[in-house]
Design a protein around this nucleic acid. Structure first.
Length: 490
RNA sequence: CGGGGCGUAGCGCAGCCCGGUUAGCGCAUCUGCUUUGGGAGCAGAGGGUCGCAGGUUCGAAUCCUGCCGCCCCGACCA
């Protein structure tokens, strides 16, 4: 492993790539924009998954699985949905290979498919084709299903975790008898995402509505959570869509209500992806590497022994065993790194790169004094503590780190959120330090388009909790009743 | 998909313009000794279809063509 990483302030994207690679999270696969998620990175994703899955089940959802390959004809049914995804679909056209005359492997032209299959870019179409079979009566509703899956979108430009050709995600797809119920579901799930982002990822987010132009292909309303990264750019971290009756009509999904009349069902879909890994990295990490919130860290405490002789290591081992049993009982994960192939300094640097929240160093000096040295990853502070009661100290420290990185991120966001009342002011703010800019605009796609062309900033969302405020569109001067959030986005 | 850059050992690079001994360097790796409270030191060793496929040539890492992949800037996007 090389020494150090590029400074965040010097070259943000280089810094980001180095954090991802040196923290052992993922690497480029060498195959068209797709990545390999390495065990350590996947362990973090699994922790995120487990928590999200629990939250979905707590809100009444069940998991299911639908096919990867979708017949092309399914796509043709919802027009705006096709428009949104057609340009980035991978298509299966053949089902067999053969050995050519020169011994090379080639596609067997005799094995051409009658109807091409699309590798799912999202699963609305296959799921709604299935729901048609599942739903006849109001008694069949609601359907509250989630799927953990991989999807493929043939993106032009990819970036580890933030945008890869293939990515892992979950997609919830629900069917309801009433509009009201579907809207409540849409809202409920964006709240679940926001809670996850803030309490587990320690990442403050703004919940809000997408504008018409940024809306999901086929949705009537899209809610999103928007987070601010340390380079001042916004990252859309999760979305929840109210699909109205669009998919029900496209796939002819009707039910008979309790008065005997036939109606189309109401739908929602919602998802978060491995992009959350990118958000997690960019929200907290520093020039020493990854910084993980304790609640999502696969290793919460790493123990680095310092010793010269085997006897010393044995003594350390005994003390560590006592500590680790206690932590285990408290549900805190600990790794004792007793490799004798690396020296302590090397290990210190390595676990800092990997974002392990707490490091415990213990050597002969400590054994003599009945102490250990604890170092916290978020502040890089080191302190000597009594071994007596260390499990309580560590527990409190982990809680404090979780809180501290959240408040650090919140402070950063507050310092980088500004109000603009004129277009000149707006342009200056966007140009300077980026960040969120709160401004009035008239709500038309034309104005949004103009702002985007002029400044590269877009409306991230119309905040759900925006206060009513009379104002004028900074571009056209037309009346506006609340400020929306603008930013440059990933 | 448009513009630019790159692909040589696990990683980072030099060599290419101007073709010609055995293709170099740093880090990493392996062995030995000494070390161990912030990425160890010294000595030695191993490791290459020069991205892939064609072409030009007596001879190609070097010149030409095509393809693949990666990075940056646009357009697109979770």
């Amino acid at each position: 492993m090389g020494k150090g990483i590029t400074k965040r302030s010097e070259n943000y994207s280089k810094w980001y790539n180095e954090v991802v690679q040196k923290a052992d999270l993922a690497e480029n696969s060498g195959v068209r924009g797709s990545m390999v998620i390495k065990p350590y990175g996947y362990a973090i994703w699994e922790k995120m998954k487990a928590q999200l899955d629990k939250m979905f089940k707590d809100t009444g959802h069940e998991n299911a699985y639908f096919p990867l390959l979708i017949p092309k004809s399914y796509f043709a049914k919802e027009a705006s949905h096709v428009d949104g995804f057609a340009k980035e679909c991978a298509v299966v056209t053949h089902y067999r290979l053969k050995t050519g005359e020169d011994g090379s492997i080639e596609v067997d032209e005799n094995a051409k498919l009658e109807e091409e299959l699309i590798v799912r870019p999202t699963s609305e179409t296959i799921i709604w084709s299935t729901y048609k079979k599942w739903i006849q009566s109001y008694r069949d509703l609601p359907i509250l299903v989630n799927q953990w899956a991989n999807v493929v979108r043939w993106e032009m430009r990819t970036r580890l975790f933030l945008r890869t050709a293939e990515f892992l995600w979950q997609e919830g797809h629900t069917a309801h008898a009433t509009r009201k119920e579907a809207e409540a579901e849409t809202l409920q799930m964006i709240n679940v995402y926001a809670e996850f982002a803030e309490k587990w990822m320690a990442m403050p987010v703004i919940k809000g509505h997408k504008t018409e132009g940024e809306r999901f292909a086929g949705a009537l309303d899209t809610l999103s959570i928007e987070a601010l990264m340390q380079d001042g750019k916004a990252l859309q971290s999760g979305t929840s869509h109210f699909l109205g009756q669009n998919f029900a009509k496209a796939f002819d999904v009707k039910f008979t209500d309790n008065t005997g009349s036939e109606k189309f069902v109401w739908a929602t879909s919602w998802g978060v992806s491995t992009r959350l890994m990118g958000a997690l990295i960019m929200a907290h990490s520093d020039d020493q590497g990854l910084v993980l919130p304790p609640k999502l860290a696969p290793i919460q405490v790493v123990v680095v022994p310092i010793y010269k002789t085997e006897e010393q290591l044995e003594d350390i081992r005994k003390t560590v065993k006592i500590i680790s049993d206690k932590l285990d009982a408290q549900g805190i994960s600990l790794k004792f790194d007793d490799r004798d192939t690396h020296r302590p300094g090397h290990k210190f640097a390595e676990y800092e790169l990997k974002g392990v929240p707490v490091r415990l160093a213990i050597g002969p000096r400590d054994l003599k004094n009945g102490t250990v040295e604890l170092a916290r990853r978020d502040t890089l502070e080191k302190k000597i503590y009594e071994i007596e009661g260390i499990e309580k100290t560590i527990e409190a420290l982990l809680e404090d780190i979780q809180k501290n990185i959240y408040s650090k991120a919140l402070t950063f966001r507050n310092e980088n959120t500004h109000k603009a009342d004129t277009y000149d002011e707006f342009k200056k703010l966007i140009k300077n330090g980026d960040g969120f800019v709160l401004a009035h605009y008239d709500g038309t796609p034309e104005t949004e388009e103009k702002i985007n062309t002029d400044t590269k900033a877009s409306v991230r969302c119309i905040p759900m909790d925006a206060e009513h405020e009379e104002g004028k569109c900074m571009v056209t001067g037309k009346p506006s009743t609340r400020r929306v959030v603008f930013a440059k986005a990933y």
